[in-house]
Amino acid sequence: MASARLKLRVAPGSRQDAVAGWMGDALKLRVRAAPEKGRANRAVEQLLARELGLPVDAVRVVAGRTGRDKTVEIDGWSVTGLQQHFGA
């Protein structure tokens, strides 16, 4: 199965979980979870899985676990498909 990597800019501790649009080549996400003990990373995976209609284990944070800039790997999508889906 194909997978794609997507760069993210994450704002933890936000009022709501939401996809906030593109910032250059990175998709900005807002998550309510605090950036402690991996909570924000799990919230990112859950938000993207919900937005893309995937099981949570199909989305994985593969880089940037402790920072705002992250890279996720998403099974079953292409980079072009993700950009189209999120309106790039």
Rank of each mutant, 00 (worst) to 15 (best):
residue 65 R to M: 14
residue 70 K to L: 05
residue 26 A to S: 13
residue 74 I to S: 06
residue 68 R to W: 08
residue 86 F to Y: 07
residue 29 L to N: 02
residue 73 E to D: 09
residue 77 W to L: 03
residue 15 R to V: 04
residue 53 G to S: 06
residue 34 A to T: 04
residue 2 A to R: 13
residue 39 R to P: 06
residue 80 T to M: 08
residue 19 V to Q: 12
residue 84 Q to E: 14
residue 85 H to V: 09
residue 24 G to A: 01
residue 32 R to K: 10
residue 28 K to I: 08
residue 14 S to M: 04
residue 10 V to F: 05
residue 43 A to R: 01
residue 35 P to C: 00
residue 52 L to Q: 01
residue 59 V to W: 08
residue 88 A to V: 12
residue 22 W to K: 11
residue 4 A to V: 03
residue 40 A to L: 10
residue 1 M to F: 02
residue 61 V to A: 01
residue 12 P to Y: 05
residue 2 A to N: 14
residue 23 M to P: 06
residue 26 A to R: 12
residue 80 T to H: 15
residue 45 E to S: 09
residue 48 L to K: 10
residue 1 M to D: 08
residue 70 K to E: 02
residue 45 E to C: 14
residue 73 E to W: 03
residue 62 V to K: 00
residue 37 K to N: 08
residue 41 N to M: 06
residue 45 E to L: 01
residue 38 G to D: 15
residue 81 G to S: 08
residue 49 A to P: 14
residue 20 A to W: 08
residue 54 L to A: 14
residue 69 D to I: 00
residue 5 R to Q: 15
residue 34 A to F: 02
residue 62 V to D: 02
residue 58 A to G: 11
residue 75 D to K: 00
residue 47 L to Q: 04
residue 61 V to G: 02
residue 2 A to P: 11
residue 40 A to S: 11
residue 21 G to W: 10
residue 84 Q to S: 15
residue 45 E to I: 01
residue 21 G to T: 04
residue 4 A to S: 09
residue 47 L to K: 07
residue 17 D to T: 01
residue 59 V to H: 03
residue 21 G to C: 11
residue 9 R to G: 09
residue 70 K to C: 07
residue 62 V to Q: 06
residue 48 L to N: 07
residue 22 W to T: 09
residue 81 G to L: 12
residue 53 G to C: 03
residue 74 I to P: 03
residue 12 P to L: 03
residue 69 D to M: 08
residue 18 A to D: 12
residue 32 R to V: 06
residue 54 L to E: 03
residue 85 H to G: 07
residue 45 E to W: 07
residue 12 P to G: 02
residue 42 R to K: 09
residue 5 R to K: 11
residue 67 G to C: 07
residue 53 G to A: 02
residue 38 G to E: 10
residue 10 V to T: 01
residue 57 D to V: 10
residue 65 R to C: 01
residue 23 M to E: 15
